[in-house]
Amino acid sequence: MSTINFTIDGKACKAKPGQTIVEAAKDNGIYIPTLCHFEGLKPAGTCRICTVKVGGRNMAACTTPVTEGMVVENKTADLEDYRKAIIEMLFVEGNHMCPTCEKSGNCELQALGYRYMMMAPRFPFLFPRRTLDASLPKIVIERNRCVQCLRCVRGITTADGKRIFGVVNRGGHVEITVDKDLAASMTDEMAQKAMDLCPVGAILKKEVGFAIPIGKRKFDSKPIGSEIEKA
């Protein structure tokens, strides 16, 4: 197959046909921040943190395929501020208490907050009333921390393809929930997968915690994205 030539912030890049901007950027050593994106899952475009500018229009880099000659703007002041704003919106939209969260250090939202040097969010906290579901045998769903990225909805299905997680309601009231009967049949492996898919601490596997100590976690020593960026 032919190679696609395109640019990101003026830098010549190459992509394989069918690759999205996020995927191609990664192969070219350029980090475009993402949150809802997860390699191997169908892109959803829920968080909009990967917003880039193409031909004067803003679009999600995780859902947009690269085309020949495409000119992508990524690290402009405007876009970086939009991204920071979205991260801040997520912090005020939920109830995030990092110091008490089992995902601290492995949390992608927290890591993005650090990377974007968020001090206090520019928006007032909304302090929503959200629920926690500890009734399931293998997992806890802590909706206070949920960012509605839909990774669990997209990634966790039963052997015969039924979705275990789903979304209910709309607008600011959307929440992740499960088919309780299907969730009851989750194996330990599925529970672990669900927890690993969750970018925040909204899905936790029961009966295990802090297996990796604080300080030795994924984002404790290097900022998110540094594994992609070439010096």
């Binding site: 475009g45 829920t46 909009r48 919106m89 997520l90 005020v92 979304v167 607008g171 600011g172």
Partner: peptide
């Protein structure tokens, strides 16, 4: 409620 800016932004 799908995307963050519309879901949270309009409330803000």
């Amino acid at each position: 409620g799908w995307c963050v800016p519309c879901r949270a932004g309009n409330v803000i």
